[in-house]
């Protein structure tokens, strides 16, 4: 069995389908409350600012800065065993919400809070593309 299929995959629902569809097309889309304009992430049904359930999707710039990170060495999941060690970075998106993803081409020893990075895309299956954290240039 190819390794990609052994990794955990998200459950696509009516709430999050626009998010995953956009990633597959190489765009990072965020929910914006259609009533008060507050951007929220991860996708969910209700705005915690005004409780509106009306939502619109806006494209994120892909620009972000490092908030924190960890380098994982232990095989918590067989699907990721051959990739160890790998670096997971939590980033602050320019739009004010965060995202957690693996790095590609970044030296973990050089990471620091506030460091500029960019969101890239990596196809996992036909339906799922994941965000990855890459160098800003």
């Amino acid at each position: 069995m190819p390794e990609s299929t052994t990794k955990p995959l998200p459950e696509i629902t009516a709430d999050n389908k626009p998010y995953w569809d956009a990633l597959s097309e190489g765009r990072l889309m965020l929910q914006r409350c259609a009533q008060c304009g507050k951007i929220r992430h991860y996708p969910r049904p209700v705005c915690d600012g005004c409780w509106s359930m009306k939502v619109e999707w806006v494209q994120a710039s892909g620009l972000a800065t490092v908030h924190s990170w960890t380098v994982t060495h232990h095989p918590f999941h067989q699907g990721f065993k051959t990739e160890l060690p790998f670096t997971l970075v939590t980033v602050d998106l320019e739009e004010g919400v965060r995202l957690n993803a693996q790095t590609r081409g970044l030296d973990p020893a050089q990471l620091g809070i506030g460091q500029p990075v960019r969101i890239g895309f990596e196809r996992v299956t036909d339906a799922i593309t994941l965000p990855v954290i890459v160098s800003p240039v």
Partner: peptide, 12 residues
């Protein structure tokens, strides 16, 4: 939420 948005990236 973690299962849908973070575990696929290896945050298990």
């Amino acid at each position: 939420i973690m299962a849908d948005y973070e575990m696929p990236s290896g945050a298990i």
